[in-house]
């Protein structure tokens, strides 16, 4: 695909995500200060410039430094958890959809049960019972509870790819089960999986901050959620110390918004049809998508083509 074909939406999304990643990766390297260092008093107002750009928090630590480290934590957790969830979901969905039969029945049942249990409850219970909560265990726990819907949608896709004749052709050529799965089924789902991974990352980031907000965050690192937890616990909202809670909230919103936008613009790239017809097509009685016969029913109904 050529870069020219990408929509402005994609570039905006990519810009936001790149910005967040830069903050999380370069921020700590540039500021070179431990986020636990005390640099001022309780809720010092923001001032120009340097470490006190965003003021201090309840312990007199720099909000700016905490913000960049928190962003890094969120990204690490999101990435690890998102990749774990996508990988497990992909594997289960692929096997279940392609193989069918009783294996499919069993895997689908597990998936459905998993979908029915509210993940947040499980995560809270597991994280409470963890002997040591660091960002990695947290990421793994989130990842292990989030793969169900990936599995479900990958299963639907792979069972439809299974109907394609090229699968039969591969069998007749002597290709084995795993070879077909990896080379004939997976490539057809890849674009979809990339999008699912992006969504998983964003939801894992939200999960992590929810946990941290509840006080179940990682013990060894600052995260955007723990910043909010302390801000609330120490009455920053009441005292008007907005700099303690607005920056992490904005950063979280930016990360999640950027990822969601990225996902939907990737969707446009992978499914060019979405770019063209849009709403107009939905209004027509029929839904023909072959270029030469577009608007079948538009014609039957005499709807103005667009």
């Amino acid at each position: 695909m050529s870069l020219r074909g990408l929509s402005p939406r994609f570039w905006v999304a990519a810009g936001i995500v790149a910005f967040v990643v830069l903050v999380g990766v370069l921020g700590p390297l540039i500021l070179r200060t431990d986020p636990d260092t005390t640099v001022g008093g309780l809720y010092d107002k923001p001032q120009c410039c340097g470490k006190l750009l965003l003021g201090t928090d309840n312990e007199g630590q720099s909000v700016l430094i905490n913000l960049v480290y928190g962003t890094r934590t969120s990204l690490i957790v999101g990435l690890i958890a998102g990749l774990i969830a996508t990988a497990i979901g992909l594997f289960v969905g692929l096997v279940s959809g392609y193989r069918g039969g009783w294996i499919d029945d069993v895997l689908s049942a597990i998936t459905n049960v998993g979908l029915a249990i509210p993940a947040i409850v499980v995560i809270i219970l597991v994280s409470v019972s963890l002997p040591k909560r660091n960002i990695y265990t947290l990421a793994v726990v989130i990842g292990l509870t989030a793969w169900f819907w990936v599995a479900r949608s990958v299963r639907a896709q792979s069972s439809s790819v299974r109907e394609r004749e090229h699968i039969d052709v591969a069998k007749l050529s002597g290709a084995g089960f795993w070879s077909i799965l990896a080379r004939d089924v997976l490539p057809y789902l890849l674009s979809y999986v990339v999008m699912a991974a992006v969504l998983q990352i964003s939801s894992a980031i939200l999960f992590e901050s929810t946990l941290s907000l509840l006080g179940l965050g990682p013990g060894d690192a600052t995260s955007l959620g723990t910043m909010l937890y302390w801000a609330i616990a120490w009455g920053s909202v009441r005292t008007g110390a907005w700099w303690a809670f607005v920056p992490p909230t904005l950063m979280l919103t930016l990360i999640v918004f950027g990822l969601l936008l990225l996902q939907s613009s990737l969707n446009e790239v992978f499914n060019p049809r979405l770019r063209r017809g849009r709403a107009a097509r939905r209004r027509m009685v029929t839904q023909v998508t072959e270029p030469e016969t577009v608007g079948a029913a538009g014609l039957l109904t005499g709807t103005e083509p667009r």
Binding site: V285, T286, Q287, V288, E290, E292, T293, G295, A296, A297, L299, L300, T301, G302, E304
Partner: peptide
């Protein structure tokens, strides 16, 4: 003109009518 002077029956039209609506709706 469209539809009442010239009408088009596209290829595959029979498979592209909405499956959830009765014929009279069309």
């Amino acid at each position: 003109w469209r539809g009442s002077v010239v009408s088009m029956l596209p290829q595959g039209a029979m498979n592209s009518i909405s499956p959830t609506k009765r014929v009279r709706h069309l």
